[in-house]
Design a protein around this nucleic acid. Structure first.
Length: 672
DNA sequence: CTTAGGG
DNA sequence: CCCTAAG
């Protein structure tokens, strides 16, 4: 596959380490499958984030966007549209092209710009989006003004930001460079044109609002991320309504966390996880694995994007790259044991590299000559290190996407707050000027940090994910036949955990990790970890890295992936196992399984093997050291003898002997 | 998918 | 039990 190859070779010249992978056909297959999923996931994330921002943005600025529906071509299409539209404000902000300018833009315009800019760059990197989210915080009165039901808030922070002189300075490097504002132009317009129907993202931003004002955001992935050429954004379509439309809006509904009524999907979650859990045991496991380890798969696509966008817009490229790197990063980080909170794993150097790389793209001029007295930061990006998604193998790609989207949404939804930490201390007074706070001195900048804190509500109510029934055919089915546990439960619930880690730009970085977890209590769990990264300070002269100090959440996610429940072997099971092994020998677990545990769905051959392993161990230790349910000594004896016997008779080597019941010490082995 | 082993 | 490497 071309895609795969690309992936392996890295993008943008960056060569990905070759990760040796088993040639196993299965694996390969799985990987491929996941590829799509992964991609989707990312895209979805990006889409969601973008949507959110966009929404807030658009709603904020009453716009009279009335254009045609954008073609979905990301690079020029959007741009053109934008131009056509000629929205002064927007263009201004957007077209400035210079980071500095946009960053420094003063007055309302500036503010506006900021908001906008945040949303603009979105498609390429989710983190940016997320970051933005943090910056802008999705919960504030600001959101209230939103027209329809959009309740996207841009909250406290925003206020804070507005007040502080430098606030806007905290612009990501990309702001200025975004080449297109699809959000402003295309999407917005499109929304208008289409009337925001169909798939929407229903995000509840704040519990306060959530119940009453479900926010509906239309996400058009294509719009967001799309290059007609190679980058094909998978569309996440509404299975019901638009099966025929490849490209459409996604509709994700994230329920409000506090009140259940709003969340249609509320109930589902709990049962869901459970429901699919058992069924496709292996399948979902694999899925999990794949999901977690293949983020970078989407890289290829992004790359394509890069290429396709060469036409004249370099920006997109850089963005793409950034995204790529990120994904890369993610990929690397992901490998750890899921159970352990992986997101804690330290970020390898390359991660930083990736980050800095993208950062370096930011206009350097900002570094130097800028108004004196201004402080500039650029928050580079946020990445999504790990997203745990669990879906039944029978789930549709669409549902998978949705799940991912939900995860992302949940994160955003939780309403992140940005905290400012100066020299270890949190600055609480939002009204203080940076100067007063000392955030203008280089030395202080060194210790300047930001925190991403989950909204107060986060831990509390459960994030309920609503799934629009429409989207899920399966769901429908399920509803119809509730009794039949359809393995197709698609929605997953996840806990979103958020991790912010500082990114070092060119220098050092304080790596602090914390995780924010929003765990939908009753809901299940899966985790979404978003790694935020990088705040890059672009103070004059040195580029300091601002440490993003993540806020630790009290809510601790239990486990990313629940382990299977422990099921001690009963004596009878042990007996059966012993017998089977006596006959079949070790090394033929599958046969053992078939022979004696055919009906025990919860006992996989691996389990049997493991059990045997422990039995052997148990048998070899003194009874006093044994723990757990005692196993009849006679059985242990048999275990031992069978074990020794088979160790000598390499059962596997002698195919013919395999099925012969052994004659170990017949005396002992009373197997008949 | 299975095995074999380490964790 | 989980996770992985490897056949």
């Amino acid at each position: 596959m071309v895609l795969k190859k690309r992936i392996e070779y890295g993008f943008g010249g960056y060569r990905l380490p070759v990760i040796p992978r088993g040639p196993r056909s299965v694996r390969r297959r799985g990987a491929q499958k996941v590829e799509d999923s992964q991609i989707c996931a990312f895209e979805l994330l990006a889409a969601v984030a973008g949507k959110l921002l966009q929404e807030s943005e658009s709603s904020a600025s009453s716009n009279a966007a009335e254009g045609k529906v954008s073609s979905g071509i990301y690079s020029d299409g959007i741009k053109q549209e934008q131009l056509e539209e000629g929205e002064a404000l927007r263009s201004e902000c957007i077209d400035q092209g210079s980071f500095v300018e946009s960053a420094i833009a003063s007055g309302l315009a500036a503010q506006k710009c900021n908001l906008k800019s945040t949303s603009r760059e979105f498609p390429h990197s989710i983190y940016d989006k997320i970051l933005e989210g943090t910056l802008i915080n999705f919960r504030s009165d600001f959101s209230k003004k939103v027209g329809h039901d959009l309740k996207l808030g841009v909250p406290d922070n925003k206020k804070a930001v507005e007040k502080s002189p430098c606030k806007v300075e905290a612009v990501s490097p990309n702001y200025g460079e975004s080449c297109d504002d699809y959000i402003d132009g295309g999407i917005e317009r499109q929304l208008d044109a289409e009337g925001n129907h169909n798939r929407n993202v229903d995000l509840t931003v704040d519990n306060t609002y959530s119940s009453k004002y479900p926010m509906e955001i239309c996400v058009d992935i294509h719009q967001l991320i799309n290059s007609d050429t190679s980058v094909q954004l998978p569309s996440y379509r509404d299975s019901v309504a638009n099966a025929s439309f490849p490209r459409h809006r996604n509709n994700v509904k994230v329920g409000s966390r506090d009140d259940g009524k709003n969340s249609i999907g509320c109930n589902r979650p709990s049962s869901k996880i459970r429901a699919f859990r058992p069924q496709p045991r292996i399948g979902h496991q694999r899925m999990r694995k794949l999901l977690t380890s293949k983020y970078w798969k989407l890289a290829p696509k992004l790359k394509d994007c890069e290429f396709s966008n060469n036409d004249g817009c370099m920006k997109p490229i850089s963005r793409c790259r950034k995204a790529l790197y990120t994904s890369e990063r993610i990929q690397r980080e992901v490998p750890f044991k899921k159970r352990k909170l992986c997101y804690h794993s330290s970020t390898p150097a390359h991660d930083l590299e990736g980050s800095s790389e993208s950062i370096s793209n930011s206009p350097k001029k900002g570094v130097y000559g800028d108004k004196i007295g201004s402080v500039k930061f650029s928050i580079k990006s946020f990445k999504v290190p790990e997203l745990y998604v669990e879906v039944p193998v029978t789930a549709t790609v669409g549902s998978l996407k949705r799940t991912v989207m939900d995860a992302v949404t949940a994160i955003l939804e939780s309403g992140l707050h940005v905290g400012v930490i100066v020299q270890g201390k949190k600055v609480k007074d939002d009204n203080k000027t940076l100067q007063q706070t000392g955030i203008c001195h280089t030395d202080v900048l060194d210790t300047l940090g930001f925190t991403l804190e989950p909204g107060s509500a986060i831990a509390l109510p459960s994030l309920s994910l609503k799934d629009p029934p429409i989207l899920l055919p399966c769901e429908t089915r399920q509803q119809l036949s509730s009794s039949a546990a359809s393995p197709i439960l698609d929605s997953g619930v996840f806990n979103a955990s958020f991790e912010a880690s500082p990114v070092t730009n060119m220098n050092h970085s304080v790596e602090s990790k914390h995780e924010l977890v929003s765990s939908p209590t009753e809901v299940l769990t899966d985790g979404t970890a978003v790694d935020s990264r990088a705040l890059v300070a672009l103070p004059a002269v040195h580029v300091e890295a601002l440490a993003v100090v993540p806020v630790n959440q009290k809510t601790r996610r239990p486990e990313l992936v629940q382990r299977r429940t422990r099921r001690p072997f009963s004596v009878s099971e042990v007996e059966a196992l012993v017998e089977a092994v006596e006959k079949l020998g070790t090394g033929r677990w599958r046969d053992v399984k078939l022979r004696s545990f055919e009906d025990a769905d919860h006992r996989t051959y691996v389990d049997l093997k493991d059990k045997w392993k422990t039995l052997v161990h148990t048998a070899s230790i003194s009874p006093q050291q044994r723990r757990g349910a005692p196993v009849p000594q006679d059985l242990l004896d048999r275990v031992l003898s069978a074990h020794t016997y088979w160790s000598h008779h390499q059962s596997k080597l002698h195919g013919k002997h395999q099925s012969e019941p052994l004659t170990i010490s017949e005396a002992q082995v009373g197997t008949a």
